[in-house]
Design a protein around this nucleic acid. Structure first.
Lengths: 155, 155
DNA sequence: GCAATTTAGTTTTATGATGCAACCACTGGA
DNA sequence: TCCAGTGGTTGCATCATAAAACTAAATTGC
């Protein structure tokens, strides 16, 4: 088989994330969902993507527990796609992507929006990696440690 | 043309990031590079990916200014692929993806490694989004503001 | 110094994914 | 009941990906 390689069984958590949200559209769909978009047509028109692909992606996101289908909030008989906690948990990933663009993009003047604190209207701080005790960490100051073997639930 | 849609001209910084690093392999290549991998064959064997694709991806990453080719550090006549500052700037994205997996994965026991502070050997803190004044922000406490039109360099 | 092997790719070919357009079923309103 | 809008599915052309075979230069062994 010449399938696109799957990372589902991979032990690396990054690969595992990519398995679920590592494609072009999924993250953009989640971005829209975080802004309150819930309806099929709304996703489709805002993202300008083909309907068949949107359809496939939404199904995949539901399968992965990132979205749930809910029975319309506005009374209509249609359904809606709503983020689960797992889906809302993607927020930091989106922020990290956004900040990377803001910092390193070759044509920053083309970036249309900035993420601000709703209260003050001021830009948010850069995400930073800190140690347990609050020290700022650079990539070089971190390492990977083998996960202390956890006991599986039931055998 | 039925090409895969490009986000290059998109005004959304997230879409712009995805344009450069939004595919399956690129992020994994950068992950390896952050751990010090530099040689073609090393990427290939560690990631277990096809050589033709690795070849294409490396070229793309170089084009995007994420990697640079440098003339071998160990004396051999081969070249190396080294991260630029822009490439190292991807680190928070990888951390965010990792932490998302750690928090929400359905089978956390399959995750092999944890990211720790090299000094203390203790797990790192979760990335958190903060306002300028240090307040913790939830997604709902943020908004997008149109970027104050910047003046282009020269005309 | 020459053959064998390694490294770093490119080419070829098969198949899966994507994008567009057309089509279809169901809803809601006049 | 007719008809526009919503929410998809289907078919087809094109693109990307994967595996394997192939190539050429660099390195190693002898």
């Amino acid at each position: 088989m010449v399938k696109r390689t799957s990372f589902e069984g991979d032990a690396c958590p990054i690969a595992r994330s990519l398995e679920a949200i590592g494609d072009w559209w999924s993250l953009l769909i989640i971005r829209e969902a975080l802004f309150g978009v819930r309806r099929f047509g709304e996703f489709q028109s805002k993202l300008g993507m083909a309907k068949n692909i949107l359809s496939v992606r939404l199904r995949a996101l539901v399968d992965h527990g990132i979205l749930t289908t809910a029975p319309a909030s506005d009374g209509s008989a249609y359904q809606e796609y709503v983020l689960t906690p797992k889906g809302r948990g993607v927020f930091p990933v989106l922020v990290a992507l956004r900040q990377w663009s803001e910092e390193f993009d070759d044509r920053p003047e083309e970036i249309a929006t900035i993420l601000v604190d709703r209260d003050k209207g001021r830009p948010v701080k850069k995400l930073e990696l800190r140690a347990e005790d609050g020290r700022l960490l650079t990539p070089a100051e971190t390492t990977l440690k083998p996960q202390p073997a956890r006991r599986r639930r039931s055998a």
